[in-house]
Nucleic acid binder design. Structure first.
Length: 198
DNA sequence: CGCCAGATTGACT
DNA sequence: GTCAATCTGGCGG
């Protein structure tokens, strides 16, 4: 079954709305002749200067990217991980959506190879884990995700019922906004787990 | 230029 | 439970 890519204008909205609507969409990575794919099960929205947890606050290249063209990848390196975001915001605004976890569909063997583990449950259930499984790194920074022939793209996927969408405060941020900006699919085994006693 | 902090993960006491 | 690895940008903590 063939899925078409999500058009650029999809990302030209409030990051929170884009985040919710990205749940169930499919991320596809073409690696040579092989395909690695999975559907999005957990996301977080980030804003501009008004958001104390946003990278856009610091300025620099990442802030410029968050301010720039929507629908492109923003790769954020931290703690030896590459975190993957999609730039999303309204006109003349700033924002991005962090993809925190995906549910594997195709290319399981490659994912296990790239992750260095055969533990299926741990393959893609975290922001740094799934990017490693998909072999996504800095080289994709700025790549448009709406091109049909792209090496990395986001396409239509599963339809997620409203009552299966849960929300919560963002994970790992020390200063959050007063609104829940983390969204995930209820009961999906690949949603990241908060570490106990932290 | 060095140090700090942050949207994390995995190894080890 | 604790700690370190390592990318980025700001600041002189």
């Amino acid at each position: 079954m063939k899925h078409s890519t999500i058009p650029k204008k999809f990302y030209m909205r409030n990051p929170k709305e884009v985040a919710v609507d990205l749940l169930g969409k499919i991320v596809t990575r073409r690696y040579g002749e092989k395909i690695i794919s999975g559907y999005i099960v957990e996301v977080e929205a980030y804003y501009g200067r008004e958001d104390p947890a946003s990278r856009a606050r610091r300025g620099g290249n990442l802030a410029e990217t968050m301010r720039g063209e929507v629908g492109v990848a923003l790769i954020y390196g931290i703690h030896r991980q590459w975190l993957f975001n999609v730039v999303a915001h309204e006109k003349d605004s700033v924002g991005a959506v962090l993809i925190r976890a995906v549910h594997p569909l195709k290319g399981l063997e490659l994912m296990m190879k790239f992750r260095g583990t055969s533990n299926l449950k741990e393959l893609t259930n975290g922001p740094g884990k799934w990017t490693k499984a998909f072999k996504i790194d800095k080289k994709f920074h700025g790549t448009p995700l709406y091109l049909e022939g792209g090496e990395l793209k986001i396409t239509e996927g599963l339809r997620i019922e409203k009552d299966r969408i849960q929300y919560a405060f963002r994970i790992g941020v020390s200063r959050d906004l007063p609104t829940p900006l983390r969204f995930y699919i209820k009961d999906d085994p690949y949603v990241s787990r908060r570490r106990r006693n932290v």
